[in-house]
């Protein structure tokens, strides 16, 4: 069953066509990668899913819902979580607080019960904490739990962002360049984590990534984009050997 469907989506910024008549489907349970040169429109695809932009034409469906009907803050409620290419964490909060914000979509309390810290608010906090602890264990963040984000090194921040997205308990996880700027060891860790996220947690992953080793290592299917349009779609091997992709990366031969 397809979880996410893009159908003939086009988005323009002024004269620039950032996404050009793009159609693709992400199947439930797969790791789907989007590759392409800088400015190809990959992050814009993510921002469209997050509803930061309205497409000019086309439809975006998620899990049998029309995504275009919801506000940006409503996307998480359907079970979509994401990371950002230029890390967007809550800088002046601890790692734990950041992950707890991820639990926001499961909030059952209201203003009054929170200000009074009623037993139901307490119960909710304990439940949230338990979920968050599982993710902290999974991603090895124990040592950083109570540290402020503003004091953390880049590599750890990347992991915290993944953790925060996982804390929302998503069906679909969007990772925008999860390995960019990471060391070789950190990239290997990320590779295994993505594998486990899909296998153990049963979460579908849609990721943008430049590291072809990582892409062919974890993804089932790959979409190659250039100038907002689809170049090729298939298994990592198929896409890497596709003539249009080679041309886009290496420039026209002759």
């Amino acid at each position: 069953m397809s979880l996410l469907e893009f159908e003939n989506v086009t988005l323009k910024f002024g004269g620039l066509t950032a996404v050009d008549d793009l159609s693709f489907e992400v199947q439930e349970g797969e790791v789907f990668a989007i590759v392409g040169p800088n400015g190809a429109g990959k992050s814009t695809v993510f921002n469209l899913i997050s509803r930061f932009y309205d497409p000019f034409v086309g439809s975006i469906r998620f899990d049998n819902h029309d995504l275009l009907q919801v506000k940006p803050s409503g996307v998480a409620a359907y079970g979509v979580a994401r990371t950002f290419q230029n890390i967007e964490l809550f800088e002046h909060a601890t790692v734990l607080q950041n992950l707890l914000v991820g639990r926001h979509r499961h909030r059952r309390t209201n203003l009054i019960s929170e200000i009074l810290f009623t037993p139901s608010a307490r119960r909710q906090e304990l439940e949230n904490r338990e979920k968050v602890e599982q993710i902290i264990d999974f991603l090895d963040l124990q040592a950083n739990r109570d540290k402020m984000i503003s004091g953390l090194p880049y590599g750890v921040r990347k992991v915290v962002e993944v953790a925060r997205a996982l804390a929302t308990d998503p069906k679909l996880l969007l990772l925008d360049e999860p390995a960019s700027g990471l060391s070789v060891e950190e990239t290997t860790d990320m590779r295994w984590w993505i594998d486990d996220i899909r296998r153990q947690m049963g979460i579908t992953v849609l990721m943008v990534e430049h590291d072809m080793g990582l892409v062919s290592g974890v993804s089932d299917r790959v979409l190659a984009m250039a100038d907002g349009a689809k170049l090729a779609l298939g298994t990592p091997v198929e896409v890497q050997s596709h003539p249009a992709v080679i041309e886009a990366y290496l420039g026209k031969a002759s």
Partner: peptide, 28 residues
Amino acid sequence: NLLRTPLGRSFIAARDSEVSAQAMGVDI
């Protein structure tokens, strides 16, 4: 109490990054 429950954290989230707060389901 506010600061140790979801609402207070959503204030901090809106302060530090509106985009990611939205992506976490916080209505700015």
